[in-house]
Structures are given as C-alpha cells and as structure tokens.
Amino acid sequence: MFQKTRELFPVKEEGVFLAHCAISPVPEPACRAMTAAVRDQMRRGMSGLSGYFQSVEKLRAAAARLLDTDPDNLAFVKNTSEAMGMIANGYPFRLGDRIISYVHEYPANHYPWRLQEKRGVELVLLPDRHLADADTGERPCGWSMEDVERLVTDRTRVIAVSHVQFTSGFAADLKELGAFCKERGIDLVVDAAQSLGCLPVRPEEWNIAAVVASGWKWLFGPTGTGLFYTAPEFRQKLADVLVGAECMVQGDDYLNHTWQPHATARRFEYSTTPTLLAVALEASLTSAVLPYPPEAVAAEVFRLQDRILAGIDRDRYKPVLFSGAHRSGILSFICRWNPDEIMKRAAQEGVFVSSRCGYLRLAPHWCTTDEEVDRAVEVLNGIEPG
C-alpha cells in the first residue's frame, strides 16, 4: 500500500531518517514543484509566478481534505507561533479570565498565552504527571484530565495544549478533551505540529476551536510553512491582530481602503503570500500525505515503532510508552548515556534521530521501511560511550 521508494524520498540515499518530529525531508514532487516555480520567477518575475497564484487555494483545499472540513476554515501561515499569536492576542479576554495550558508546552504554545497576563488574564499551568510506564524522573511527561477538571472554573475561557508533547510523545485524547470543553463552553486550541500528518485530527467532530500545525514535520513540507484551522463561530470571536492587503476582500485594489476583511480564514493571510512555499507544501500534501488515510498512517507508524521496540537494547534504551489514545508518532527513550552524543554518533553512521530535553526521540513515518528500522536498531545498539 505505502510507496516507500527512493524516487519519492531521495533522503533514503543518505541513510535512515527517523526524525520526523524535527525537520522532515521533503518528497521529490515538492522539490520539483518549488524548483519550477523559482525558475519561472527567475526568468519572468511576477509574470512567471502568475500561474502559481492559485497555489494557496489548492493548498487550502488539500488541507481541508486532511482535516475533514471546508477550505474556508483553513489559512496558510508561516509557523505555529504566528497563528497562536493571532489567536491569543485577538481573543476577547476580560479581566479575570483564565487560560489553561501545560507547564511544559512548546514555546509557540506558551508565550502567546503568557503575554495575556498583561491584560489581566490568568494563565494556569497543568502540572507534569508521570503517566508513562517508565519512570521519567525530572523529564517532562504529560498531564491528566483529573487536573484539567480540578483547575477549570467558570472563568476558564481557553484550554491550549499540544496534541502531542514534543518531548515524551504523550498524546492528548482530543475527543475526550473536546467533549469536556463543549459541555462547559470552553474554546479548545490545539497545537498539532507533532501530530497532523501522522495521527487523525478531526476538529469539527471533536469540538476543537482552532488547530495550528507547522508544515515541516509530519506533513513533509518546507520550513516557513504552516496550516491554521478555525471554526467559523470561533473565528468571529477573534479581533484582527495582523492586517494587510491580502486579508481584505478588495485584494489588489490597493487604494480602496474600505475595511472589509474576509469572513473566511483568509483574513489571517494578511500580507504577501510566500507562493513558492505554498506550492511546495501543497505538493507534499498531494504526493505524500493525502494518498493514505490518517488511521492507516498511524497504524503503520505504530507497527514500525513495535519493530524498534522488539530489537532495541532495553538495557541501554528504556522506552517511554503510552497506551491507547495517548500513543503518538514520537517514541522517546531514556538512555544510559547522553542522548545528544548518541544522536551525533548515530548520524555519523547514517541514522538520523533527534534529542530533546533528556530524551532520545525516534520518529519513523509511513515511508520508513522495515529494513531501515532494523539498520537503525543495529547502529543504536552498537554505540558505545566515547
């Protein structure tokens, strides 16, 4: 079913790539599409790019298929920080309102909410809980619904968490959390940078107000790209934070200064669109994400993880495992030796993994083969302290 070829992913010529939770390699069609667009701009400037001006519309349509929503609910952004900033700074908070988040969130989903303290809003952080089957010590692990229930009050307006924690790989049960928020009229904002493209994400079915994801991880896109979903009723709540020509209905009628921003998510695409990047991300989605249902992708990733677990030396690498809805595409390990050093040593052998906050992270994607997994396990098991 899965086309795990070198033609689609030339990175295979360099070695085994198990760091899709960091910056993924782009598939060959994305590189080809972006190269063609750059070449056309090189030769003819604006006229060379005119044929690509519909690329963002195609990207929105592709992203809408992935999230099972309408393209009008999608915006093309540069990264998660940009979108989270527009949400947090545009939200109609009042003095004494509360935001709930997790104490070890990635900065893109922390600082924009922390900034709201200047508006008299209270940021309440869920404590870290040891929810894995291994003792994670002082390393970040995850948060519990019991703490959410305990900390929510009638002044809680937003819960802002990552679908998957970038450190341990703990995944939130978004279906459960979304139902909880719906019962209480709380807006659920999700950073899906570490899940979209690997796990199912269904904002409309799960009552998620906003989903933000970077394009260069599980979506195989170039850096400087991101996707931003907003539910229509939530979008209406947000004040405008960043504005420019492209967010207005009149578009390139630049001397028409009538204030009429788009009602769709296009209002968040406030300035000149990075067309070349949109072309590449749309090609990545079309060639490497949309051909496979999210459930099938998750099942394949978990199968590859199980193959890693079956062969890895448990005396050297202690896995941090979560069950059920809390499992994700990130398989984190507590190592006998420094994980940063292991990452460097593995790269010298052509095996690319990542290290964060005391964990060694292995993140295969559907494009990873069994032979590549076996090669990576062999290299990792053979590394000795320098």
Rank of each mutant, 00 (worst) to 15 (best):
F166C: 08
D173Q: 04
P200K: 01
C181H: 03
V212R: 03
I208E: 13
A172V: 11
A193E: 10
F170D: 10
L174Y: 06
T167P: 01
W206K: 04
L219W: 12
A192H: 00
V190E: 13
A209S: 15
G215Q: 11
G185T: 13
K182C: 05
G197N: 06
G169E: 01
D191H: 07
D191Q: 14
H163K: 13
S162T: 08
N207M: 05
W218S: 12
F180V: 07
L174G: 00
D187Q: 04
V201C: 14
Q194R: 12
G197Q: 02
F166L: 13
S214H: 11
A213T: 14
G185P: 10
C198Y: 11
S168T: 10
V201H: 02
R184I: 03
V189M: 00
E205C: 08
A213C: 13
W206V: 03
C181W: 01
E176A: 15
D191G: 15
K217D: 09
V164L: 08
C198Q: 14
F180I: 12
W206Y: 08
A209C: 05
V190F: 05
R202M: 12
P222C: 08
H163C: 10
N207P: 06
A209V: 09
T167N: 14
F166K: 04
I186K: 06
D173G: 09
F220R: 12
L219G: 13
S214D: 13
A210P: 13
W206E: 11
A171N: 09
A210M: 10
V189D: 14
P222V: 07
V164Y: 02
L174P: 14
H163V: 00
S214G: 15
K175A: 13
A192R: 04
S195R: 00
T167E: 13
E205A: 14
K175Q: 14
A192N: 05
D191T: 08
I186S: 08
A210S: 15
Q165C: 09
G215F: 05
F166V: 04
E205I: 05
A193W: 00
H163A: 04
P222M: 08
A193G: 10
V201E: 11
G169P: 13
A172T: 02
A172D: 04
A160K: 02
